[in-house]
Design a protein around this nucleic acid. Structure first.
Length: 288
DNA sequence: CATTTCACCTGGTGGC
DNA sequence: TGCCACCAGGTGAAAT
């Protein structure tokens, strides 16, 4: 479900609603898959920490956590999350079907709920993931260093650096776009959509694109990702943001999941092929 | 090393 | 209604 725009939308929503709140305790399901850090360590680490801020890096949601202020003189003033330095992080990767939801405690607990964090404000932060491809990780920053996604951010990378990512590579440009160690955050929808807007066939060798094609691709990615964030992401089947609201960018898709339909630009029938094991959609006329 | 394939999961859809 | 094949926003390990 979630690529850069969806993850960005969720992270912003959680940040807006939970910044400054405090985690009372954490409950986790018994399925082992989602836990990169063992359940017990995660529950212990999260308990009574303050949520300082929440942001996205690549497809990861990072919650910056502060240690809880203990009794006594330390709490003379109300909490100022921005002034406190994080000493732990909770990292959420949503996989294909993960959701991160801010709810009231009386909200029915749906199937596949794998984490529930109860909060001082009385609300809950829930992680729900039917396919269990998502991952939850707790990092104690006094023992390990700050989480960082390996690839470059497509919204801030410059022309030269972008071109250098693909130089000399034999794999298809679409496969390269999906490689998170090159670019962080691009998934199947936005790879297909940006290649359409750049007029490039998904099977073209990454290292054989011209400089102008590469620059068109970088600009197309920026345009598509920014517009998708503006529209709250793509809700193809079940993606919702932290408030449970659907996005609208699926209405703007030109090729993704439009097999057999006419190209919005030239009317040619959109084709679907298999590339890097993923359904890949393109217009045989607009993309060369 | 770079690249490709496959397993990991559940659920929805459409054909028969 | 049931059964089956196929498809789905991702990734990391294993094979090539």
């Amino acid at each position: 479900m979630p690529e850069l725009p969806e993850v960005e939308t969720i992270a912003r929503g959680v940040d807006e609603r939970l910044r400054g709140d405090q985690i009372l305790e954490a409950w986790f399901s018994s399925y082992p898959q989602p836990f990169k850090t063992p359940r017990s360590a995660q529950a212990k680490g999260l308990a009574s920490r303050t949520i300082l801020s929440v942001h996205r890096t690549g497809k990861h949601i990072v919650c910056e956590l502060g240690s809880s202020q203990q009794s006594g003189a330390a709490q003379a003033r109300p909490q100022q999350p921005d002034a406190q330095w994080p000493d732990a992080q909770w990292i959420v990767h949503l996989g294909m079907t993960g959701r991160l939801l801010v709810t009231t405690p009386d909200e029915p607990v749906v199937t596949h709920t794998h984490a529930r964090l109860s909060l001082l404000s009385g609300r809950e932060l829930r992680f729900v993931d039917a396919r269990r491809f998502g991952r939850l990780e707790f990092r104690d920053l006094s023992r390990s260093h700050t989480f960082d996604a390996p690839g470059s951010e497509p919204l801030s990378i410059g022309r030269e650096e972008f071109a250098a990512l693909f130089r000399g590579r034999k794999l298809a440009i679409k496969a390269a776009l999906l490689n998170q160690t090159l670019l962080a955050g691009v998934g199947n929808i936005y790879a297909d959509e940006s290649l359409f807007h750049a007029g490039i066939r998904p099977r073209r060798g990454a290292g054989r694109l011209t400089r102008s094609e590469l620059e068109r691709l970088r600009q197309a990615l920026r345009k598509v990702l920014k517009q998708a964030i503006r529209l709250g992401g793509s809700s193809v089947s079940d993606y919702v943001d932290a408030n449970g609201a659907r996005g609208f960018f699926q209405l703007e898709h030109c090729v993704y999941l439009r097999t057999g339909e006419p190209c919005r630009s030239c009317g040619t029938t959109i084709r679907r092929i298999l590339l890097a094991g993923r359904g890949t959609h393109f217009c045989p006329n607009c993309q060369r």
